[in-house]
Write a protein that binds this DNA or RNA. Structure first.
Lengths: 201, 201
DNA sequence: GTGTTAGCTTACCAGTCGGTAAGTTTTTTC
DNA sequence: GAAAAAACTTACCGACTGGTAAGCTAACAC
């Protein structure tokens, strides 16, 4: 692993944990026993480093999702696979979810490489899958986008809440919720897959 | 409106838009044509002011939810009413959603008044309502908590994504998604209300 | 073996931050 | 109307920030 890669790894953690502003390039360099000027030598500026971190995450995500979709042609399986993979990834790599959530909050210019585009392609890919479902024939594209966004919201919100949930309900209960989440997520997906319409009373 | 209240209002906006660290007490004071020392006179420290902002939001939310629950005894109506109210509030007061989301990300010490407790009581209230639903008789409490959390996640994630969505899909499409969201949210709620179990194929 | 480049350091700077100290002006109290 | 308290200001400080400038050192090119 080159010094540059180690910088990115440390930066990813510190940016995710403390946010862009409360992370100083000096503290990143310190963790590697180097000076902040070494960091600036490799990345030019703090923003560049941050952009590099985001770009790496985006690329990994898109490639994973794209590969999963190739495994089958059944839209229902595709949808389930990608969403469950998103969930597993969000739980295994909470730092990435945190970073992307922060990015969503600060829609400002900071990183021109922004994940905006990554998010867009991922969402549209999922929406296209949804529209291929039998129950969604002729449904407006907007509805599919919204539905997909709701599921991603549930997943990511839960992922970044992990520390808070552990604090609120205790480790045992929050661990139980994680297990439960998969089953409940499956239910939510199915509600969409079949576009269940329940009449008022 | 007293100066103190005006400070809180401005602080709320700036904290939500830029986060705790990128918001300087000087810029808050500037907006009111005062100096930062005036602010410190009223609140003692930046953290105190931030805590005050959070506390005010929490109180408003809990009281609104509590009042809504009193309006009926039917758990299904209660659930729907509170969740839809959450959604409407999140869309009308995006600053609050942003602030709470930030707080969730930085579970650190910063504000001892933390919204952690507000969140907890709100979630538990909703979970209790869910457990009263016929379909949820004898269901584990953990499942209800998880389900509720998923819905809140979908709502809040969507709310804070508004600027990004507008950027990604354009104003018209994102406005359409907002309208659609209610219907799709209703579907998700119903999926839970009736605890629909769909068999694998 | 000389020139060049990559990887790094020390030294430094201008700007911003939250907060303290001490004072001034305005309002309230009795 | 005098005393007290509240609402503010000016002046200042030490800590920290990202970034620039200049130089050192070792590996590599030819």
């Amino acid at each position: 692993m080159t010094t540059k890669h180690r910088f990115i790894a440390v930066a990813k953690r510190q940016f995710a944990e403390n946010g862009f502003d409360r992370t100083s390039i000096a503290s990143i360099a310190d963790e590697l026993g180097l000076t902040k000027q070494a960091l600036l030598h490799h990345f030019g500026s703090k923003k560049n480093l941050y952009g590099e971190v985001l770009r790496q995450i985006s690329e990994r995500h898109t490639s994973i999702a794209a590969n999963l979709v190739l495994e089958t042609e059944d839209p229902r399986t595709q949808l389930e696979t990608v969403l469950f993979a998103s969930f597993e990834n969000a739980m295994e790599e909470p730092l990435e979810s945190q970073l992307l959530m922060r990015e969503l909050l600060e829609n400002t210019s900071r990183a021109e490489v922004a994940d905006t585009w990554y998010l867009k392609s991922a969402i549209e890919m999922l929406a296209n899958i949804v529209l291929e479902l039998p129950a969604w024939k002729n449904a407006p594209r907007t509805d599919a986008l919204t539905y997909v966004y709701q599921l991603l919201g549930a997943i990511n919100y839960f992922a970044i809440s992990q520390p808070t949930l552990k604090q609120m309900f205790g480790a045992r209960q929050s661990k139980a919720m994680e297990k439960t989440f998969r089953a409940e997520l499956y239910r939510l997906i199915q509600a969409g897959v079949y576009r269940i319409a329940i009449k008022e009373n």
